[in-house]
Design a protein around this nucleic acid. Structure first.
Lengths: 231, 231
DNA sequence: GGCTGTCTGTACGGTATCGTACATTCAAAC
DNA sequence: GTTTGAATGTACGATACCGTACAGACAGCC
């Protein structure tokens, strides 16, 4: 595998010392992830772990009788598979590609080997796992108490942080599943944000027009989570 | 510190090889935890970690403008502080004593030292941390979709599993905070469970009268979580 | 035995969202 | 250019729960 610049788009990889990075990249494959791809299933073994470069992955929790609901987002700042640190090869949640793009893929066994030899990788994954734990607790309370409009704004901001442009593709239907609400509730909330000039959208293409405004509308959960980003 | 039988009430400790256990117990102090004690605060450093013997601890996530809400329960099957594995000395959630009783207390630094020398302890903590991660995702969806009655039944069952009797002490007010609902909603839901002969209660003393019946009323989230218990 | 504070029962208007249905708009395919 | 399907707009009764208020019941204290 080539170790060219694009791999540095992933912050976790970019943070590795060169020797560790090159060793890790030897086990990685460049893959293109398509919208809707399912990368792992809740309570089933991971097949691969992924370091997103431009792709965006949603973690989703599911339950009988309801469509899976979004609980976290993973982009180039992190990776899918941090829970492999935790003495289990099972995925705690489903992982779905919410933004098509490139990622580095590594087998579970290769990742585990790399962990033994790369203390920096281990440390980074630990930090991100901590962040996920804090975030999941926060999301529970957020989902319970905050209204659709604020939660929608939060999800759009989290996506924007991981997108590489001021626009991306998500339908109301998809967002409704993420937030665990009716599609029509998303349409109404989106309409308000559009009216306010904060976002624009048409047939799945969403534009972030006024980030500061969106942050004002979003619940504090968005900022609370950002504060946990290392550095 | 004495290494008498009572310490084996904690499953995590009981599972250690004798040498590792005795070494760990040297750093532990027997403490009595009182109802309502706050053992750590969300996003603040842990002072101590705790291995409950008979005490029960609630993990609670909080947010401005709302009372903290329960997201998990810790009893003799586990410990408070598993996230110390994750390269951070901060607690992801608040921890409150929901059932008075005994626990073993250990300082963060002593625990970290013990981790280096006890691979079994490390492994157990990793497993429980995985379980917590899965549980937090599950709880998010549960809180969103399941009704108060089912969630109340789930919480009572989780408490019962960690209590050492068929009765324990929790007021409607306290349960309301745990579930993130109004106190009056808990009174109504409890009334239904009492009518059905599943539980009894009076002035804070709750009796589990029909466990199987409660399990039938509780959402599947209760069983989903139990399946993750090692063994 | 009466007082007091806590716990529980109950009521009731208000509201966010549900669940569902149907109309409209637009992009792409034919 | 027309058809088709997906995406979006809108409506509306139903419902679970909110927020609040107040009354009753019980335990402990003086």
């Amino acid at each position: 595998m080539k170790a060219g610049r694009p791999t540095l788009q992933n912050r976790l990889i970019a943070g590795l010392p060169q020797a560790e990075r090159e060793s890790l990249l030897h086990s990685c494959a460049d893959v293109e992830l398509n919208f809707g791809d399912k990368l792992c299933s809740q309570r089933e073994p991971y097949i691969y772990a992924y370091f997103p470069l431009t792709a965006i992955i949603s973690l989703m929790a599911s339950m009988e009788g309801h469509p899976p609901m979004g609980v976290s987002i993973i982009g180039h700042e992190s990776m899918l598979g941090v829970s492999l640190l935790l003495a289990s090869d099972l995925a705690p949640q489903h992982a779905i590609v919410q933004g098509a793009g490139m990622a580095l893929r590594i087998s579970v066994s290769d990742l585990c080997e790399a962990l033994v030899e790369s203390p920096v990788l281990l440390h980074s994954m630990q930090r991100y796992c901590f962040r996920l734990t804090a975030q999941l607790g926060q999301t529970t309370v957020c989902t319970r108490f905050h209204q659709v409009e604020a939660r929608l704004a939060r999800w759009l901001l989290m996506t924007h942080d991981r997108a590489h442009a001021d626009h991306f593709y998500l339908t109301h239907e998809f967002l409704a599943d993420m937030l665990g609400v009716q599609r029509s509730a998303v349409t109404i909330a989106s309409g308000v944000l559009k009216q306010g000039g904060l976002i624009g959208y048409s047939r799945g293409r969403i534009s972030i027009l006024d980030r500061a405004g969106l942050e004002a509308v979003a619940c504090e959960c968005y900022m609370a989570d950002r504060l946990l980003v290392p550095d």
